[in-house]
Design a protein around this nucleic acid. Structure first.
Length: 295
DNA sequence: CTATAAACCTGCTGGC
DNA sequence: TGCCAGCAGGTTTATA
């Protein structure tokens, strides 16, 4: 599930529902899921802190943690527009769901998630649970001054204002790699995964094996627009869900109904009717329309 | 720099 | 129904 669109969708839900909540206990069911610093320190650092903001970088979810002001103001501080209130950030939890991880916010009476990996109890009785049947996903805690090292390897943010056609053209320039592995390279563009890479290439009319530095300016502009479009559509549809839930409350994303090529091999292309083809590129199943996306 | 394979894990689906 | 092969939304590491 979790590519940029699915992470962004959950980030928005968390921003609406979890900011201001205080963590009372942390139970780590599968310790290897904590990648930094150690499971024990992770748990100890979280307890007593309050969720002050939610952010995202590529497929990585960022949860800002702080402590309420020790003194005074009787008024609870309302979160500001960027999700950060009058509480000082002291650290961050990062969540990478990899292939199959899910984040759920459970009401007090709801049963535990299946495949539970980390259970975070909130002071109001709700639980924030990370579950993951494949156990590929990772959580970490970073002090505020350590966060940059956690984000150091990420490339362009596709939904940021500076992700222009010129920016993408600069990324493609001088690279002999095929487009598909380049789009999946998080150090170049952060957040595209197998679904949205295939969908973006299809919308741009580009073959997945096309060499990156052979695109014309018009083609790279088309690709930039296609990337932004597929991601925004994915977010608007609540993400793409194949198996289990992926929203914060267990709801399935509806974007699967809008995919044009991903997992549609053999079915007719919506544009030209040619059967969608599947090949393997960089160990990943890759779908495209051989007519709309000529090599 | 680029490419390829394997590893990390488990669940699900389709074929026989 | 049972078993096996193949596939899966991602990343890291080792090897050419």
């Amino acid at each position: 599930m979790p590519e940029l669109a699915e992470v962004e969708y959950v980030a928005r839900q968390l921003r609406e529902n979890a900011i201001g909540a205080t963590i009372s206990t942390v139970n780590i069911v599968w310790p290897r899921a904590i990648s930094h610093p150690t499971p024990e320190i992770f748990a100890a650092e979280l307890v007593g802190r309050t969720i002050t903001g939610i952010d995202r970088r590529g497929k990585l979810l960022l949860v800002a943690l702080g402590r309420p002001h020790p003194v005074a103001s009787r008024e609870p501080c309302p979160p500001s527009a960027d999700g950060v209130g009058e509480i000082e950030e002291e650290g961050w939890v990062t969540v990478h769901r990899r292939m199959a991880g899910n984040l759920r916010l459970l009401m007090a009476e709801e049963p535990d998630e299946r495949y539970l990996v980390v259970d975070i109890r909130l002071a109001d009785g709700r639980r924030l649970q990370y579950s993951d049947p494949r156990k590929f996903g990772r959580l970490a805690f970073w002090h505020a001054d350590e966060l940059p090292q956690a984000l150091a390897e990420y490339g362009a943010e596709p939904l940021a204002a500076d992700f222009t056609a010129a920016r993408l053209a600069a990324i493609l320039r001088g690279r002999s790699r095929a487009l598909k592995p380049l789009l999946l390279d998080q150090a170049r563009i952060a957040g595209l995964g197998n679904i949205y890479a295939d969908e973006a290439l299809h919308r741009a009319g580009l073959h997945p094996l096309r060499q990156a530095d052979t695109l014309t300016p018009a083609e790279s502009a088309r690709l930039r627009d296609a990337i932004v479009t597929v991601l925004e559509l994915g977010i608007a549809h609540g993400g793409t869900t194949f198996g289990r839930h992926q929203g914060l409350f267990g709801e399935a994303g509806r974007n699967v109904d809008y995919l044009l090529v991903y997992r549609r091999e053999g079915q007719p292309c919506a544009t030209c009717g040619t059967p969608i083809q599947r090949i393997v590129v960089a160990q990943r199943g890759t779908r495209f329309c051989p007519r709309c996306q000529p090599e």
